[in-house]
């Protein structure tokens, strides 16, 4: 099998460089059009806003006519829907999931809680601003937003993909150090994920001055080799979850 780094994946980043082929612009346009018309959103219900997604997806509002379908695995999904508040425990899983998704990927924050904590502003268990930990392309406000609002938000995202404005995933590579710093602030200094974000950033040619910094150095210092997860099933024992990064 070929090494990952040798596979040449055409990406949007090259648009900014000078293109020699006169058809390049047309081709990019076509790629973006196709991307905006076939979006798979990850089937992950993080909070209460998820209750309005089944109506949005099924017969009455029927999101499928816009080319949006639920997808069960992160690696094949394009959209990560954060449907409402994220507890700190969920946020870890959300970040792991996000880093597993293939670029280009988009994050939509649904409900007021993702913007500023919403009605759980004094809760010790939920993270307050989602865009400190993940690059959010679009917010859909409301508590909770109606299916029409979800559809409207999806159409907006489609427009932004077509115009090339939805590039939060690039921001994650460019300012990885800042995002990682916020994550470390919340989860502790030994926070790590199995994804090699810096390597991916340089692969996509998106590594910049903000990609590496003090926080990524801390990550490299604290990084431990992945170990098999400890067993959960000890008779009379406790549910030890060690090595969270495996999940």
């Amino acid at each position: 099998m070929k090494n990952m780094k040798e596979i040449d994946i055409p990406i949007e980043a090259s648009v900014e460089q000078s293109r020699t082929n006169p058809l390049a612009r047309v081709f990019d346009e076509l790629v973006r059009f196709c991307r905006s018309r076939s979006m798979f959103m990850l089937h992950y219900c993080t909070g209460c806003g998820a209750i309005e997604l089944p109506p949005a997806m099924t017969s009455r509002f029927d999101m499928e006519r816009l080319g949006i379908q639920p997808m069960v695995t992160p690696r094949q999904a394009d959209i990560l829907l954060i449907t409402g508040y994220v507890s700190i425990k969920t946020l870890k899983r959300v970040i792991l999931t996000y880093e597993q998704m293939g670029s280009p990927k988009y994050v939509i924050g649904i409900c007021s809680c993702t913007v500023n904590g919403g009605m759980y502003w004094q809760s010790y268990a939920t993270a307050k601003q989602l865009d400190q930990y993940l690059p959010v392309d679009l917010y859909i406000a409301g508590c909770m937003p109606r299916p029409e609002a979800v559809l409207e938000g999806m159409r907006k995202l489609m427009d932004r993909i077509r115009s090339g404005e939805a590039d939060g995933w690039k921001d994650y590579y460019r300012r990885y150090d800042w995002y990682l710093g916020n994550q470390q602030h919340l989860f502790g200094d030994d926070w790590q994920t199995p994804a090699d974000v810096i390597g991916e950033a340089s692969h996509y040619d998106l590594a910049g001055s903000g990609t590496e910094g003090e926080h990524t150095h801390l990550l490299q210092q604290c990084q431990k080799p992945l170990e098999p997860q400890q067993t959960f099933f000890q008779i009379g024992g406790s549910l030890e979850v060690k090595g969270e990064s495996h999940e």
Partner: peptide, 27 residues
């Protein structure tokens, strides 16, 4: 609370609001 390192949160002496203000920024 598997990923919570603070004191037991429902005890009256734990001030959740102060903890939140210390930990999170607000827009």
């Amino acid at each position: 609370l598997t990923e919570w390192n603070g004191p037991p949160p429902m005890r009256k002496e734990f001030d959740a609001e102060a903890w939140v203000n210390e930990t999170f920024e607000r827009k």
